[in-house]
Structure formats: C-alpha cells, structure tokens
Nucleic acid binder design. Structure first.
Lengths: 148, 148
DNA sequence: TTAACTGATCTACTATTATAGTGCAGTAAA
DNA sequence: TTTACTGCACTATAATAGTAGATCAGTTAA
C-alpha cells in the first residue's frame, strides 16, 4: 500500500505582505502542528510538491523545513521525506505560550486604538461564531500587510 | 517661545523580528495617530532625532515618513518638520477597520490553536485589566518573531 | 544676519529574501 | 533492477531592506 498520508496545507500567501513568504508558510505549518491538525509521524508534502502548490521556489521550502527541524517540529528522512515530530509536553506548553502571546498583542493594539473591554467582548461574540462555523482554518498571513 | 511639542514615541523595536524595522515603526506611528494620541498639527520628531533615538538610519525614517505622507497621515514642511494630518471622518473609519482586522486575525489564530470562546473570554478578562492599568502604550513589535 | 536646526537628495555598500537551475545519493514501489 | 520519487548541496542572479555618509536648501529663533 502506498504511503498516501500527504498533508495538504490550505493557506493563502500574501506576497505583498511585509512578512516574508517563508515566514508566513513557516508559521502556518507550526500552527498546524501545535493545533494537532498535523499529527505525530505524519508526512509533510515533499519540497517540490509544496513549492509547486504554493508557487514558490523549492529552495524557500527547504529553508522552512530546515528551520522547523532545528526548532524540533519535524525531522527528515533523506530520500523519504519530512515528518511531523511532536513532544506532547512541549506541544502543550508551546500552544499556550502562543495563545498568551497572541492575546497580549491583540489587547495592546486594541487598547491603543481606544477600544474598551466591552467593545472587544461585543465584536468577539459576533465574529467568533461566524469563524467557528466556517470550520476550516483561516489565513495566517497579513500579520504583515501590503505597502500599497 | 520655543516649539516644544515634539512627540515622543515610546516603542521597542525588535531587530530580530521577521517584520522589517521600518514596518514596525510605521505601524506604531499610524496606530498613535489613529488612536489620537498624536493630534492634528502636532509635530513629529525630526528625522535625525527619531533615527538617533531608535538607533536606526535616518534614511529609514525618511522612508517611513514619506510612506505615511502618501497614505495621508502626515505632511511635511521642508525645513520645519513633519506634522500630523488627520481627516476626522477618515480617522474614525480607519480606526474601526483596523479594529475589525486585528480581531479577525486574532480569532483565526486562536481557533486554529483549538481554544474556545470561553478560553478567550477568560484570558481576556485577566490580561485586559493588567494592560489597562499600565496605561502607557505597549510594544507593537514582535508581530514578527525571532528566527533564533 | 547668524547659527542651528529642518527636510531632501544622492551615492555606495551589505545582508536578507527569493528565484532559477544543476546534479547527486537515498528511498520506495513496481 | 528499474523508475520515480525524495532530501540535499551547490552556484548564480535579482530585488528589497537597511546602513553609512555627504551635500544642499528652507526654516526658525536668537
């Protein structure tokens, strides 16, 4: 039986973003691992396949995978592919750390804009359901933002 | 009487961030204008002064100010300085647009991480007060993130 | 007027980001 | 074994981001 557990990443890339492409993709994969959408041992797309799919250069993918390997999220089996590697403990911890970080960033910006806790509560109520219904994961990009 | 309404930007820059320095600074200033912490007609720091303070090159500041000018947030009086320019209508609108955008980004990430509305509510309650007490504006950086 | 500031313009240089292409060795399945 | 895939290691090129430093003209306040 063929090894058909190739993982598809459904994300958009914003080439106009101030955030480099490789960083957008890297975050997307990391997020997928932390959320356990990508599971232990699961095979990532091959360098060439992902490069083709995302319309970016294979070298860029190598860079991403290599960095993720250094950070301990994946490992490589030369000739076979890249595979997800997760330490349950680390995962749990990292997941919460990221949650805290994103929350802090969000609150800082929102306060700077002059919105209150109640304002935030209201908009969250509205958006949360909407996003949750569209169960598919959303775009990770445009933490950057076009310069146009 | 000397024109002493120089505006100080109290932000940190993360040179290791994936987000370019000029983009971090630009966002910080834009946010300050949208929040009306920087008011109509107020003088920005001079190119050299801000460059010195942030420990970055004056050319980078010129780039930032020029872009903000194109986007209609400031205007320049050669020899005198850069000044805040805000259209009340535009400001109000932009402020809310940014609020929505930040909220959507935040929710998307949080859902991907597998946290629920209740989780978000809880952490927001905790952090919101803490941040609000430290009334001074927070760091804008590390939307990027070190590659170390 | 003078002195010290201001924005504006310019050139030269470096590092990062990303593309493009070649080739080689290991792996998996027919 | 053969074929087609895989990671991996190169080199070369280009655009962007950022540093460094000089010069010039307009503005402001003494």
């Amino acid at each position: 039986m063929k090894q058909e557990e190739r993982t598809f990443f459904e994300f958009k890339i914003d080439v106009k973003s101030a955030l480099p492409v490789y960083e957008q993709v890297k975050r997307a994969i990391k997020l997928a691992i932390l959320s356990q959408r990508l599971k232990e041992g699961e095979k990532l797309m091959s360098l060439r396949e992902l490069a083709l799919k995302l319309q970016i250069n294979p070298n860029t993918i190598i860079k991403i995978y290599t960095q993720l390997e250094v950070e301990g999220y994946v490992y490589s089996r030369p000739g076979a592919g890249y595979f997800v590697k997760v330490d349950k403990e680390k995962l749990k911890k990292e997941r919460f750390v990221l949650f805290e970080k994103e929350t802090q960033d969000y609150i800082a910006k929102v306060i700077e804009l002059g919105y209150s806790f109640d304002d935030v509560l209201e908009i969250l109520k509205r958006y949360f359901n909407r996003e949750n219904d569209a169960a598919n994961f959303k775009n990770i990009e445009d933490t950057g933002g076009s310069n146009a």
